[in-house]
Write a protein that binds this DNA or RNA. Structure first.
Lengths: 250, 250
DNA sequence: GGTTCGATATACTCATACAAATTAAATTTC
DNA sequence: GAAATTTAATTTGTATGAGTATATCGAACC
């Protein structure tokens, strides 16, 4: 036991695109397992030696993976006590990487609802701040994003990326780092919306006019209009979303 | 070179309270250095060997520290390219641990302002949701928190902890995990408010009536009143805060 | 029954060796 | 001479084994 590790080659893990270091791959694997409920809060992990052997990685790599998850509030580890999953309330569910893990698989519907509710709270206010504080450059970014959205349409990845860029630009234009930090969370919700709606083949409404209304309000520095138009955009998006979430899985 | 490591004892790092593992202590040290601008975005770190030797820790421990900071979006590392500080926009500034590092030292005033603005966006909405969805148990928690606040006063650590518990309970009562994840961010702002005001010796106003108004609205399930009373609480707190921030450092 | 104390399991730290990956330079080729 | 290709060098990444520190559990002891 110990001479079985001699190949020494091909130690990479494929993912959707590109490859990850081992520790990162393990972190993703464990993180996903926790998010999907394989390991529940309070559950105790096996020891480092067992775990690393079972996963066919070194203790070093495994430990670094665990460090990552601890940094995200998912795990806790103490000598003798072991490594255990923390209560959900301690997880940094807004962490960009964690959101990526969630949305790589089939994300929890309740959490999508929560994320949408958060959008509803954040984005109208953000739009108002953006209307007040945006620079010319930031407006240019929104202009281009909107153009790209129109050119590619929301059915293409390029179009969806442009959609995200638009919302991201608004948050950046608030000139508030704390709000801007929520960009990835909002982005995850944005991307999921169109993905979901598209999968359901129900594109009942062209979202572009809504976006343009927001854009024009921000361009005109009309704070009140920015807020209300963004709220309206979200209200409609949420309605579509709720409709999609109601139905059983395709 | 190599026989100098023989003592083998007393390898702990003291902090305000308790002790940290080495990797965590290094992570805190590096994280704080980045937050205070010692290492700026784009800056390249020294190599792992140099760094770990300079800090008198093993490469393993140093690397685990770096993994933590990477997990929080502050660093990036690639073979040959080295380890460098990411742009501020990539930092997870809402991460609880990161907030703790910030507020251990003298936090950036601009960021405090941002955090307060975030509170202004989040908490009124949260109060409204809480008024609609709170359970009896959650209301009990608020009740006790308010009692503790009244008993201890905001000048004591116990009182301030109760203040945080109150706001935390409201976020929990939204039954929205995404909103609840912002508890630590809001909490940091809450705690800094009273600390700051107290340091300045300007306690012009008893914040308890404001809190009671919010509490009663939530207890009565009056969503509109919950929102407006929370907004009012924050408006007043912000006014005090701005006043304190205007003045030069004591 | 509570308290102290010791054994034990577990994560933590260290040191060293080697592998992989990426950048940069050197070389070839057109 | 410029572009593509190969080579080399540097840095992080992974593996392994030995030893340390610490929290928990159980037993002995008030």
């Amino acid at each position: 036991m110990g001479s079985e590790r001699k190949e020494g080659t091909e130690r990479r893990f494929a993912t959707e695109e590109g490859s990850l270091r081992i520790h990162q791959a393990i972190a993703r694997q464990l993180g996903t397992a926790i998010l999907t409920g394989v390991h529940k809060p309070g559950d105790l992990f096996e020891g480092e030696i067992e775990a690393s052997e079972r996963l066919h990685v070194s203790r070093t790599a495994y430990r670094e993976a665990v460090r990552i998850l601890i940094a995200k509030g998912m795990l806790e580890s103490r000598p003798k006590a072991g490594t255990r999953v923390l209560p959900r309330s301690r997880w940094n569910v807004l962490d960009p990487e964690m959101l990526a893990w969630m949305f790589a698989g089939e994300p929890d519907r309740a959490f999508i609802r929560d994320l949408f509710e958060l959008r509803g709270v954040i984005e109208p206010a953000a739009a108002e701040f953006a209307a007040r504080r945006r620079t010319g450059e930031q407006l240019d970014i929104m202009t281009r994003a909107l153009e790209d959205m129109e050119r590619h349409g929301l059915s293409t990845p390029d179009g969806r990326a442009a959609d995200q860029r638009f919302h991201h630009a608004i948050l950046a234009a608030t000139h508030n780092d704390a709000l801007a930090a929520l960009a990835s969370s909002v982005g995850a919700a944005v991307s999921w919306t169109t993905t979901f709606k598209h999968r359901k083949k129900l594109l009942p409404r062209d979202p572009l006019p809504d976006h343009k209304a927001v854009y024009q309000a921000i361009a005109a520095r009309d704070t009140a209009a920015a807020r209300t138009s963004m709220a309206e955009l979200l209200r409609l998006a949420l309605a579509d979303m709720d409709l999609a979430l109601m139905e059983p899985e395709a």
